[in-house]
């Protein structure tokens, strides 16, 4: 790991390139006694293996990778370091929740999670996008195969979302949850429509959203 070029040296001309550990390591020996190093080595090896296993065990993965990850389930549960880090492997459309609340007087209110504009810092809206994404991930198997048996996680999450909406909207009698996706336009489509309209492309045009797909109807009776 570049050891030969990283010998400790006088620091008259500090450089950001110097390894923060090696620049201070004028002593060749560790001040820790051997037993402490052995103990720490064991802990470090387990941790490194757990982080590695956690990222490998996420689908798509081999049986071996999953078994390896399972061996460190205790570590992932305790230390919260079992992530896959597979960010944006393919930029997907963005899921959004559309909740239709029916009031006792027959009035209907539609709530979007998130709304297009959420007051406060952008992170507040980002958390709401995560809510929609969580419900979408939990509902995906059933959205892809409507005949499939209800996933207990989906049922729990959707029911919890519905209960929360009922409570936060007093007077609601029932709530229907739907999911839709905000699409990403292709460059060709943007160029074509910009040519036709002569103006900028509207990322929020109705055609940029998929038809809402039904997740479930939930009564606001506390069940």
């Amino acid at each position: 790991m570049g050891r030969k070029t990283e010998q400790p040296r006088a620091t008259v001309a500090p450089s950001p390139a110097v390894d923060p550990v090696l620049e201070a390591a004028a002593a060749a020996a560790s001040p820790w006694p051997p037993w402490a190093r052995r103990l720490a080595t064991l802990a470090l090896a387990v941790h490194v293996a757990a982080v590695f296993g956690g990222s490998m065990g996420v689908p798509p993965s081999s049986v071996l990778e999953r078994r390896f990850a399972d061996a460190f389930a205790w570590h992932h549960g305790l230390f919260d370091q079992g992530y896959a880090y597979r960010y944006y492997a393919e930029p997907p459309p963005t899921p959004l929740i559309q909740a239709t609340l029916r009031r006792e007087d027959g009035e209907i209110e539609t709530v979007n999670v998130p709304e297009r504009h959420v007051a406060g810092p952008p992170m507040r809206r980002q958390r709401q996008l995560a809510l929609a994404n969580a419900l979408f991930s939990a509902s995906l198997p059933q959205l892809e195969d409507p005949d499939r048996e209800g996933d207990p996680r989906r049922t729990w999450l959707a029911r919890s979302f519905a209960r929360h909406l009922c409570r936060s909207h007093p007077g609601a009698e029932s709530v229907t949850l739907r999911l839709r996706q905000h699409l990403i336009p292709s460059p060709d489509r943007v160029l074509e429509e910009s040519r036709e309209t002569g103006g900028p492309f509207d990322l929020f045009a109705p055609s940029m959203f998929t038809e809402p797909r039904w997740i479930g109807d939930f009564p606001c009776d506390g069940s």
């Binding site: 963005t94 990403i184 900028p200």
Partner: peptide
Amino acid sequence: NAGEFAWLDFTWLA
């Protein structure tokens, strides 16, 4: 150009 994330118009990059 994911509408839910972008706040500036980058469609001109098409």
